[in-house]
């Protein structure tokens, strides 16, 4: 006498579907895992850190040019220039245009850095170094916004035709 289909189905349904993952297989797997991506993770962070440092230096120079940031020096000790001539006005305006270009570049680079950091933090939410970089990038973002407001107020000096 053979068992019926219903009984067979019940026994098949009751079969174990899960067991402990064999640790020896993971040992074999882990020793053979090739590195993923074009660069190891720690090198990517170093590259990102280098970019952020470059941004910080560029931003400091930009802020210095715009007069938003001065290195520590006693105020009032620097001689103020006399009333500028037309040529001096022109010379003053050219750096303003350069500042705009530098600003645009700095803003785009900082935004790209923020996006890259957001992706990296999504992959490693607990990475303190990344969080620190992100805080710095956000701080730079706010400084750039402040600077943009300042640049918008600039006007072409009198006597200069664009």
């Amino acid at each position: 006498m053979t068992i019926d289909d219903k009984k067979l189905d019940q026994r098949l349904a009751a079969l174990q579907r899960e067991c402990d993952p064999p640790p020896e297989v993971w040992v074999q797997v882990s020793t053979q895992l090739p590195a993923r991506g074009s660069r190891p993770a720690h090198r990517r962070w170093l590259a990102m850190a280098a970019v952020l440092c470059g941004l910080a230096v560029g931003l400091a120079l930009l802020l210095g040019q715009a007069g938003l940031w001065q290195p520590d020096s006693a105020p009032g000790l620097v001689d103020q220039p006399a009333v500028p001539t037309t040529q001096e006005h022109h010379a003053e305006w050219q750096p303003a245009l350069q500042r705009q270009a530098v600003f645009d570049t700095a803003w785009e680079e900082n935004e790209a850095a923020i996006k890259a950091l957001e992706q990296a933090l999504a992959a490693e939410p607990g990475n303190l170094l990344l969080k620190e970089f992100m805080a710095e990038a956000r701080l730079r973002q706010s400084k750039l916004i402040e600077l943009a407001l300042r640049i918008d107020k600039l006007e072409a000096p009198s006597g200069v035709q664009l």
């Binding site: 993971w26 882990s30 895992l33 590195a35 993923r36 991506g37 190891p40 993770a41 990296a120 999504a122 992959a123 490693e124």
Partner: peptide, 13 residues
């Protein structure tokens, strides 16, 4: 999976 794609072997483990 997202972490493993970024190269995190602990996530793959």
């Amino acid at each position: 999976v997202v972490s493993a794609r970024a190269g995190c072997q602990q996530s793959f483990q």
